[in-house]
Design a protein around this nucleic acid. Structure first.
Lengths: 220, 220
DNA sequence: CGGCATCCGGGAAGATACTG
DNA sequence: CAGTATCTTCCCGGATGCCG
């Protein structure tokens, strides 16, 4: 039994002291990095993760969460009563993997094979703001925007050339944008206008916000 | 036949417009990112890659190279006569994946499970210089160092707070360091001194160089 | 329903041997 | 040297079912 275990593990290792190779052992398995991505704005439940990652089956999600927990990237917690619900959250160190996700996304956005019309999770959309935000275009602008995708709500703040995203209610925002992540992506990155979006509050703030982003040129 | 093909491809996709997900489709398969890493300092032959990546079998390497070529990350070329040898090289866009490798390595170096005593490829060692270099520690220092690992030779230059690495002969370097990648890593990152290294030229330059690097603190 | 174990089919990874 | 061919092992993904 023990021998089997050793071979199973060792054949899956890279046996390489390079940090990159070790990183692949931690978050390089299929779906792992996307699970980390979905946890980037705070804890989520098992079912939330499944809903955000269509195509990921429950047993694989269980395995990945176990692996990520063993690696110290994820912690399994139980929310205090009365919620008393089990959630998965990133450790502080796990949250520091955001640059890995950003750089990979920024690089892959230039791929000739990238299809931006596929479905998009709310978290992906919000993370892309942080990745694609251009501080020079924002200049000294200050604004607060709310985004609502079904039951998920985020608040985006722009101030001092920095963009922040938090998962929270959007009551105090200057403008609230309601729609699908895909419609928001079309408006921000394709310049498709506001089709499919319901905008309440100061729509001109969102129009200004859209200009802070630009997709990098395609390679090849 | 056609139906099979569709399912084969689709079950391997993430069906996600997120750039990160697409990035995983491009370079997320097992070994793929390490192959890209090995090509980071210029073209390599099939056998070079095998030698640098022990544990990677020939058939998988063939598949990965095909996939990376189809993705536009890698090009297969034939060197002009008299060499007339087939090599694999990164496209310009493929070479821009270096930040992905760096960020993953930087993040994973903080893992409690990272074992820096495993074998290391020459390219990994040189890339780690670029990842872990601290411009503030280097200040205004200027230096040129040669590193020789068996038949592979690199030249590292430090100037104006920047570190450059090129695969080339080390004739003009102020100091030449000969040894294994593991010994160099021990000297630079563990402060293990010069055991296992043969240093010719101005050894004090290498001693100064070593102080430009520091491993980040472990997480957890 | 949320979380997890189990079984199965297909395909990918890995080892070895072989060919041009 | 640069890959193929083949075979085994294991992982992924889907379905089902159990249990709280």
């Amino acid at each position: 039994m023990k021998l089997e275990k050793i071979t199973n593990e060792s054949r899956r290792r890279y046996d390489d002291a390079c940090g990159t190779a070790h990183g692949l052992e931690l978050i390089g398995e299929r779906w792992a990095l996307l699970i980390v991505r979905e946890l980037m704005f705070g804890p989520r439940r098992f079912g939330d993760l499944r809903a955000s990652l269509p195509g990921l089956s429950a047993n694989v999600l269980t395995q990945r969460l176990e692996g990520l927990e063993a690696a110290g990237v994820v912690v399994k917690r139980r929310l205090p009563p009365p919620a008393s619900v089990q959630v998965y959250d990133l450790t502080d160190w796990g949250r520091e993997a955001e640059p890995v996700i950003s750089e990979l996304g920024r690089w892959a956005a230039r791929s000739p094979g990238h299809d931006p019309t596929l479905p998009l999770s709310p978290v992906s959309m919000m993370l892309s703001f942080r990745t694609m935000f251009d501080p020079r275009k924002a200049g000294k602008s200050r604004m607060t925007l709310g985004f609502r995708f079904g039951f998920e709500t985020f608040v985006v703040t722009v101030a001092d050339g920095e963009l922040g995203v938090r998962r929270m209610e959007a009551d105090g925002a200057e403008v609230i944008v309601v729609g699908s992540p895909e419609s928001v992506a079309a408006a921000v990155y394709v310049g498709a206008g506001m089709e499919g979006l319901e905008i309440s509050g100061r729509a001109e703030v969102f129009e200004q916000f859209v200009d802070f982003f630009e997709l990098p040129p395609k390679a090849g």
